[in-house]
Nucleic acid binder design. Structure first.
Length: 472
RNA sequence: CGCGGGGUGGAGCAGUCUGGCAGCUCGGGUGGCUCAUAACCACCAGGUCGUGGGUUCAAAUCCCACCCCCGCAACCA
C-alpha cells in the first residue's frame, strides 16, 4: 500500500497572506511527504495558490493594483514562507499559469461538447450595494452585513455542471472505501449528506466576473472556482488535458488529498464528480483535519485571540513551530491553542525534554567515540504517522524514548561510573547515544534540521543548546 | 423533528468503533540527584467520565431520553 502517492494540500486563496491554518495543513503534508521519501517511497507533493475570482478582483481594485500584480505578490509570499517553514513540496501550482488556464479551457470545451456543461440559470441572493451574490451564511438576520439591506432573489444566465447522475456511484465508492474518507466521522457525515438529498447541478461560470478564465465557447463568462481550482490538482502534477488519459489515471488513482474540515463537502462531491466526468479514477484517500482554535473559538481579530505565524516564528524557531503545531492535539479534531500553553509545551518537550537530553548525554559522553547504530523501525510510530495521520501520537512514541533515556541515566549514574567502572560506563553511554541516533532518525520528518544537528553534535561530541528555554 | 461533533481530576486532552482495574501532558505538593538548558528522577494529592434510565457478570465505552456547548447548512485550513 502507498507505493506511490500524489499528495496535495488545498490551493490557498491568494487574497491574503498565509496564516497559521494554512501552515498547519502544509506542514502536516510536508511531514508525511518527508516520511515517504525517508522510506524510499515514491511520493509527489503539491501545494499552490488559487488566484482567480471576484474577491481578488475587488481587493486589487481597492489597492489600486492589477489583479495579476496582487496575486504575484501573495503567491510569492506563500512560496517564501513555505520555504522558510522547510516545506519540501515537489510542485507549486498557480491557477494563473497559462498552461493551467489552457487545460481548464480544454476541459470546459470537452464537457460542453458532451453536454456535461449546459446553459442554464443561477439563482441567488443579490446585494445591490455589494454588486454581488451573497451566501445565505454571510447574512445577518437576512441582511447584508455591509449594507444592512435585504438582498433580492435574482436569476442570471450561467453554465451548469451535471451532478446528480453520478451521485449513486459516488455514494457507493465512498461507502466501500474505494474513495477513503478519514477520520471515519467525516465519511459518516458526507454519506449522510449525500443520501439525504439529490445533488443540484452547480453553476460553473459567472458573467460579471472579469478576473478568471474565459469560457472558450462563451467569452461573456469566466469559469467559477470549481473547475479552475480543482483541476489544479491534475495540472499541478503535469497532466496535459482530457486526451492525456494515461497520466490522468496515473495521477488520480494515487491521489491523497489533505484538507481542512471546512472544504470536505466540495472535495467529496464536486471534485470526484468532475473526475468521473473526465473518466479518470477517484482519489485513494481524502484526509480531513480539524481547525486550530484559540480559547475554544475560531481565531478572529475582534476576539483578539489570533496567533500569527510571524509571532510563532519569532518566539520559537521554525522547527519548534512545526513541532508545536503538529503536537498540539489530535490531527483530525479541532485543536485548541493559546500562546501560554504552546510556550509551556515548548519548554517541557523541546527545551527540558529533547534539548536537555541531547546536551546531557553529550557532556556525559566526554572522551568516548560514538558509533552509529543500525536503523530501527517502530511499528506504532509508523502506524500513527503514515496511516492514521496522528502526528501527535507518533511524536509521543519518540518522547517515550526520551523519558526512558532520562530514567536510564538516573538508574545507572554514568557520572559515577566514569570514575569507578569504565567498562560499564562505556556500555551505558553507547546505549544512550544509540537512543539519540534513533530519536534523530525518527524526528527527521518533523524537524529535519534538528535531526541533522543532533547527529552532528554526537559525531563531534560537542554539546549544543538546541532549544533555549523560554522564560516568560 | 436539517446534518455532524463534543461534555473525562485545576488546565488541555487520549481512551468510545472492538465493553474488562480511569490514563497522558501541564500545573500543585513532598523527597532525591548534581551529568544536563534552575534541567532530570521517584512518590503524593486531585475525577459520582454532563444528567436520568436500560442492557450486561462487567459500561466513559452499547441502547433510550434529556440538558448544555461548538461547528456546518454547497468554495474560509
Amino acid at each position: 500500500m502507498n507505493k506511490k502517492t500524489y499528495l496535495t494540500t488545498p490551493i490557498y486563496y491568494a487574497n491574503a497572506s498565509p496564516h497559521i491554518g494554512t501552515a498547519y495543513t502544509t506542514i502536516a503534508g510536508d511531514v508525511w511527504q518527508r516520511f515517504q521519501l525517508q522510506h524510499k517511497k515514491e511520493s509527489f507533493f503539491l501545494t499552490g495558490t488559487d488566484e482567480h475570482g471576484l474577491k481578488i478582483e475587488k481587493k486589487a481594485q481597492d489597492l489600486k493594483m492589477k489583479p495579476q500584480e496582487l496575486v504575484d505578490k501573495i503567491s510569492a509570499e506563500f512560496q517564501y514562507l513555505w520555504k522558510k517553514l522547510e516545506i519540501a513540496n515537489t510542485h507549486f501550482i498557480r491557477t494563473s499559469d497559462i498552461k493551467h488556464q489552457k487545460i481548464v479551457q480544454a476541459v470546459l470545451d470537452d464537457f460542453f461538447q458532451k453536454g456535461i456543461i449546459y446553459k442554464g440559470k443561477y439563482e441567488g441572493l443579490y446585494c445591490v450595494g455589494c454588486e454581488q451574490f451573497k451566501n445565505p451564511s454571510d447574512l445577518i438576520e437576512g441582511k447584508c452585513p455591509d449594507h444592512n439591506i435585504k438582498p433580492e432573489l435574482v436569476q442570471e444566465e450561467s453554465y451548469l455542471l451535471k451532478m446528480s447522475e453520478k451521485q449513486s456511484e459516488l455514494i457507493n465508492k465512498i461507502k466501500t472505501d474505494q474513495l477513503k474518507i478519514r477520520p471515519l466521522k467525516y465519511k459518516k457525515e458526507i454519506l449522510s449528506f449525500l443520501e439525504n438529498q439529490v445533488l443540484e447541478d452547480i453553476a460553473i461560470s459567472r458573467p460579471q466576473v472579469k478576473w478568471g478564465i474565459p469560457l472558450p465557447f462563451d467569452s461573456q463568462h469566466t469559469t467559477y472556482v470549481w473547475l479552475d481550482a480543482f483541476l489544479s490538482y491534475l495540472t499541478g502534477f503535469g497532466w496535459k488535458g482530457p486526451q492525456d488519459k494515461k497520466r490522468g489515471k496515473e495521477i488520480s488513482s494515487h491521489f491523497f488529498h489533505l484538507i481542512g474540515k471546512d472544504i470536505l463537502r466540495v472535495h467529496a462531491t464536486i471534485w470526484p464528480i468532475i473526475l468521473m466526468h473526465l473518466n479518470l479514477e477517484l482519489p485513494q484517500k481524502i484526509f480531513v483535519h480539524g481547525h486550530i482554535l484559540s480559547r475554544g473559538k475560531k481565531m478572529s481579530k475582534s476576539l483578539g485571540n489570533v496567533i500569527s505565524l510571524e509571532e510563532m516564528l519569532e518566539k520559537f524557531n521554525v522547527e519548534a513551530t512545526r513541532y508545536l503545531l503538529l503536537s498540539a492535539g489530535s490531527f483530525g479534531e479541532d485543536v485548541d491553542v493559546t500562546l501560554e500553553r504552546i510556550t509551556e509545551k515548548y519548554n517541557a518537550d523541546l527545551a527540558n525534554g529533547l534539548g536537555n537530553l541531547v546536551s546531557r548525554v553529550i557532556s556525559l559522553n566526554k572522551n568516548l567515540k560514538v558509533s552509529i547504530p543500525e536503523k530501527k523501525e517502530l511499528g506504532n510510530f509508523q502506524l500513527f504517522l503514515e496511516k492514521k495521520l496522528r502526528f501527535d501520537k507518533a511524536l509521543e512514541e519518540i518522547w517515550k524514548i526520551i523519558e526512558e533515556s532520562n530514567v536510564y541515566i538516573e538508574k545507572n549514574r554514568p557520572w559515577e561510573l566514569m570514575k569507578s567502572n569504565q567498562k560499564k560506563y562505556k556500555k551505558v553511554m553507547s546505549i544512550l547515544t544509540s537512543n539519540l541516533f534513533l530519536i534523530a532518525d525518527l524526528i527527521q520528518p518533523f524537524m529535519p534540521q534538528t535531526a541533522l544537528e543532533i547527529e552532528k553534535s554526537l559525531k563531534n561530541n560537542q554539546a549544543t543548546i538546541l532549544f533555549p528555554r523560554i522564560i516568560k
